[in-house]
Design a protein around this nucleic acid. Structure first.
Length: 835
RNA sequence: GCCGGUGUGGUGGAACUGGCAGACGCGCCGGACUCAAAAUCCGGUUGGGGCAACCCAGUGAGAGUUCGAUUCUCUCCACCGGCACCA
């Protein structure tokens, strides 16, 4: 086969893409006699076109998938579309295109882009979350969760994005702003569907420790998000009443310093205790606003259970209803927030903890001899020694927390409790383009789940997108009016749709089935061999922005499906790689910054092999990648050099085979030949190690560049010389193939091999051939390099020592003093300590 | 504020378990080819000193441990990320 003289990816790449697609070479079959490897990249939202972040993400995943395949694994490497979401609906409002049309057109275009990148997906498993075949399972899981009490409806204050006209989950509010559109989020009271993720809070937290293959940073973020804290629930009896205010505190040791109690505005007692409803409304309007602390005195008092003190009850805008009991005790001396509040409303500040240093410095000071007359300038929030705390004075904070908790418990006025920051996951969205929540409301029967036989509840097509007046589903009678599944009477359908994070919480499970499998229906409802085989995902790759959101929801969903008896594992992702952002000119690529690089342009100009190679070479995957147009040219230059070596030596190489080189007979080789052969084996070893060790592709590629540099300078003079060259070229192409599959395939074929490299297996190296014949010994005197010496490998420490001390240059240095010590590091250096 | 991370040439980044700092790429400088340029190829490239062999300094700053520290410990500085009335 002839080879073009110049490397032209525009001719090479389409040829191989066509070859792979026509033979469906990346199709994966379930085969439990083989070792499996499930390699998954986060699927994209079909926004219209892919961006460089996708190129990087998918290039990383493709290298891993191809590498594992060459290592003999049965690799599952699927792709799909996170296809529900607001942009489609906004496009409908703005341009009058139906969200479905807009979405499917985008998918079609983006699929073409992914294929142009030469990614090794099994498209038969493609998942599109907006198709009824997919979202019917969201609905089925929802109904199951309803049965198990894991889905429920309640009225609560929720995060409302005025621009998106919908609620947001806590995880979707970033800095008080909407994660999608950056609008300021407000609090609004609404009836909402929730998934009881808190039921799994403890398990999600403790099994964090099993996530050994995740970046520690992400595990830590999950732990912090779940936010477990130990504390005490204490009862403050309301004066002239039988009722108690239950407060939650982690600082039972400060109970004697309580000077007031605060209720959250939505707390049920707030409305009962406050007489002036206008004032209560005012403070309720300020609920959740971070800027200023505001309070309202109820005129009522309650009794501190530890000392019987009478303390005023306030309503305070900063007290959260959703955490703890919705009521707090306020200790201004030891909590800065309470301190600020006390100063503002002129409430007493009573110090009950003193810093430990005072006591250490002056011996044990009785609590009565407290420091006098120095008012606190700020709250003292650290632990210390209790003072003015009755019989607990003199206790250390840590001990006092235990002892006081026990005291309250014995009195029946409190108990030890555990609290989590994690809240239940609100999934209702007041938008059209999402999974309909499969529930109907009947005047007689109340909330009725849609029976399984009526699933899926399909999104109606006959809707209008005006952008006003809430969800278009509210205006669709064909959707809205139903008969009750229980009594047959008139009923109304739920018009809220599900958060799209529901879709992505289990898509990795759906991939485990061949898209055309007719038995799918029963397989998703009970334990199937496919799920047992493929799950969990061995390697998951995506952006760190989902550290809590998607990754936490997926961990939750996997457990729910486990408890439904569908899946055997609890953790969905064994190993997680969070890739860095793509940066250009010091900022994340974005339209507004005008620093975007268009993948289409890049592929057209340099080819996808070059695009992939650069994004893998410029930085290790977990770090941010600094885009450089010059760097891309460098990658292209490198591939051209590989091409040129092959095209220059094509005919001579085709006449030889390289097989017998590894048997050890290298006596006929020149010095250069031996060197190249050694470098070849060293490179196979190095590239393998770099991929295995945390997927450091950048150093793997640099090793390949070194090998190619040596090949460029090598001039074979005889048959055995060409054998060496051919061996070097073949190994290079095999090693290169996960990174740049098209050019590898083209050159592989050109030198006379059968195409489809992935089936050839990963190359091996010969430890003997990889070994250096001699090494450079570094000679140090007192830790400074003073000389270098070439020595043969395999010498003993004593021999090395003798050689080093006998070196001509050493003699001068050693004249200066007495040798105190000689340290020999095998194969590296000798350090002579002279004093 | 709390938690976590990072800091290495002009630049992106290398450096196994504490053992030659700066691999590889980019840029720059010099050379070859060319009427010339582009492309390509070859050589050089941490800073300072020296004709040179070499010498000195050097991984954000300062200390410490060690024969030896980019790597381990402590303090500080700068930047980045997460959380933030979570009681």
């Amino acid at each position: 086969m002839a080879l073009e003289e110049r490397y032209d990816p525009r001719k090479v790449e389409p040829k191989w893409q066509k070859f792979w697609a026509e033979k469906n070479l990346y199709k994966t079959e379930y085969d439990d006699s083989r070792k499996k490897f499930y390699c998954l990249e986060m699927f994209p939202y079909p926004s219209g076109r892919i961006h460089m972040g996708h190129v990087r993400n998918y290039a990383i995943g493709d290298v891993i998938a191809r590498y594992k395949r060459m290592r003999g694994f049965n690799v599952l490497h699927p792709m799909g579309w996170d296809a529900f979401g607001l942009p489609a609906e906004n496009a409908a409002i703005k341009h009058g295109v139906h969200p479905s049309k807009w979405t499917y057109e985008n998918i079609s275009y983006m699929k073409g882009q992914l294929n142009k990148l030469g990614l090794s997906y099994d498209w038969d498993r493609e998942v599109t979350t907006c198709s009824p075949e997919y979202y019917r399972w969201n609905q089925w899981f929802f109904v199951k969760m309803l049965e198990k009490g894991l889905a429920y409806r309640k009225s609560s204050y929720v995060n409302w994005c005025p621009s998106c006209q919908t609620v947001l989950a806590n995880e979707q509010v970033i800095d008080s702003k909407c994660w999608r559109c950056d609008s300021i989020v407000v609090q609004k009271e609404l009836f909402q569907w929730f998934l009881r993720i808190t039921r799994y809070a403890e398990e999600l937290l403790t099994s964090c420790d099993e996530l050994a293959g995740w970046p520690e940073k992400v595990v830590l973020m999950q732990k912090n998000w779940i936010g477990k804290s130990f504390g005490v629930e204490a009862d403050f009896r309301i004066e002239d009443s039988d009722e108690n205010i239950k407060i939650f505190t982690t600082r039972a040791d400060t109970l004697f310093g309580v000077s007031f109690v605060c209720l959250s505005p939505p707390h049920p007692l707030s409305a009962r205790l406050v007489e002036d409803k206008d004032e209560l409304d005012k403070i309720t309007a300020q609920y959740g606003k971070a800027d200023e602390k505001m309070g309202l005195f109820t005129g009522r008092y309650c009794i501190n259970p530890v000392n019987g003190e009478r303390v005023p009850i306030y309503i305070a805008n900063f007290v959260l209803m959703e955490y703890g009991t919705g009521a707090i005790m306020s200790v201004p001396a030891h909590d800065q927030r309470d301190f600020d509040f006390a100063v503002k409303y002129d409430l007493p500040i009573k110090q009950v903890i003193m810093p430990e240093e005072k006591i250490v410095g002056a011996g044990l000071v009785p609590a009565q001899q407290k420091p006098q007359g120095v008012p606190l300038q700020a709250a003292y929030e650290d632990d210390g020694i209790l003072m003015d705390s009755g019989k607990f004075s003199g206790f250390a904070s840590t001990d006092a927390r235990e002892t006081i908790a026990k005291y309250l418990q014995d009195k029946g006025a409190g108990r030890k409790v555990v609290n989590y920051k994690l809240r239940d996951w609100g999934i209702s969205r007041q938008r059209y383009w999402g999974t309909p929540i499969p529930v109907i409301y009947c005047d007689r029967c109340g909330i009725v789940p849609v029976p399984e036989k009526d699933l899926p509840v399909i999104l109606p097509e006959d809707v209008r997108f005006t952008g006003k007046g809430g969800s278009p589903l509210l205006e669709s009678p064909s959707f809205l009016d139903v008969t009750c599944a229980v009594c047959g009477g008139k009923a109304r359908r739920e018009t809220d749709t599900m958060d799209t994070f529901v879709d992505s919480s289990w898509y990795f499970i759906r991939y485990c089935f061949d898209g055309k499998d007719p038995g799918l229906d029963s397989k998703l409802k009970s334990k199937s061999p496919e799920l047992g085989y493929w799950m969990p995902v061995d390697q998951y790759i995506g952006g760190v922005e989902h550290a809590v959101l998607h990754l936490l929801y997926s961990r939750f969903f996997t457990r729910v499906l486990r408890d439904l008896g569908i899946i055997g594992c609890s953790e969905p992702f064994t190993n997680l790689l969070t890739q860095g952002m793509v940066i250009k000119d010091g900022a994340k690529m974005s339209k507004s910054k005008g620093n975007v690089v268009d993948p289409d342009y890049l592929i057209e100009r340099y080819g996808s092999d070059t695009s992939r190679l650069f994004s893998l070479f410029a930085a290790p995957p977990e770090k941010d990648l600094d885009w450089s147009d010059k760097g891309v040219e460098g990658a292209y230059r490198f591939l051209s050099r590989v091409w040129n070596i092959v095209s220059k030596n094509l005919e001579a190489m085709k006449r030889v085979v390289s097989d017998d080189l590894s048997t050890g007979d290298i006596s006929g080789l020149t010095e250069e030949g031996r060197s190249l052969l050694r470098k070849t084996h060293q490179t196979v070893k190095k590239v393998t190690a770099d991929i295995e060790k945390e997927y450091h592709f950048n150093t793997a590629i640099s090793a390949l560049m070194e090998l190619v540099n040596e090949m460029t300078g090598f001039e074979p003079r005889d048959e055995i010389g060409y054998k060496v060259l051919r061996a070097a070229v073949e190994k290079t192409l095999l090693l290169l193939s996960p990174f740049t599959p098209h050019i590898a395939e083209e050159l592989w074929e050109a030198i006379g091999n059968e195409p489809f490299i992935p089936d050839r297996g990963w190359p091996s190296w010969d430890e003997g051939l990889a070994m250096d014949e001699e090494i450079e010994l570094v000679i140090q005197v007192n830790g400074k390099v003073r000389g270098k010496l070439m020595i043969p490998v395999g010498l003993t420490d004593d021999e090395i020592k003798k050689l080093a001390l006998g070196d001509r240059k050493m003699v001068e240095f050693l004249g200066q003093g007495v040798i105190r010590k000689v340290i020999v590091v095998k194969g590296r250096l000798v350090n002579v300590v002279v004093g």
